[in-house]
């Protein structure tokens, strides 16, 4: 079986810049789930998360020539999606001050979804998934973003450093502080 090797994201965006719209669709297919999963962790609303990701791809479509090959496509699109998510979050905060008890989560959030990665037998240990999501939502910036990028999206320190435009050492220390903060919040929630 000799399949054609998959094109890299960077090759696809280059193809798209040269007018190949199928390359754009391929990028959408590659990134839509990852980005929905990413943005959802900020917004906790599936409809809003999908809207934001739609907007992200829409921006990519309209501004395709803004991408330069000096950056990885993934860090570029994560930056756009992250900016949109956080801007939406700020808008919400201006409208309403959320309290922990206000937070309601989608029913399907903690139901295993077909992911190809961690589908079967998800067993949460003593920290229930819902508690951890509430704790993340309650985390102040910059800890929230860094936890989502590192521990949920599982991006490399290098990529996070590019997306947030901070040195790698700062990324590492913030990840550590964010995790400690999260663990502290969870202990507090459990009391």
């Amino acid at each position: 079986m000799s399949e054609k090797p998959l094109k890299t994201d960077e090759q696809l965006i280059a193809d798209f810049q040269n007018g190949n719209e199928n390359a754009f669709v391929e990028l959408v297919d590659r990134y839509k789930d990852r980005l929905v999963n990413f943005v959802y962790r900020f917004l906790h609303d599936m409809t809003d998360a999908e809207d934001m990701v739609q907007e992200t791809f829409f921006k990519v479509y309209k501004n395709k020539h803004a991408y330069r090959e000096i950056a990885k496509f993934s860090t570029w699109i994560y930056t756009i999606a992250g900016n949109l998510a956080r801007s939406e979050l700020r808008k919400r905060k201006r409208r309403k001050t959320y309290t922990m008890s206000d937070l309601s989560f989608d029913d399907n959030e903690f139901t295993p979804v077909d992911t190809g990665k961690d589908t079967e037998g998800i067993v949460f240990n003593s920290y229930a998934g819902e508690e951890i999501m509430k704790a993340i939502y309650a985390l102040p910036e910059p800890f929230k973003t860094i936890i989502i990028l590192r521990d949920i999206q599982e991006l490399s320190y290098e990529d996070i450093s590019t997306i947030l435009d901070i040195p790698m050492g700062t990324v590492k220390s913030r990840v550590n502080r964010a995790r400690l903060k999260l663990q502290e919040t969870l202990s507090y929630l459990k009391e």
Partner: peptide
Amino acid sequence: HNLPTLKA
């Protein structure tokens, strides 16, 4: 790391 991954 084991949170279920959501899909579009």
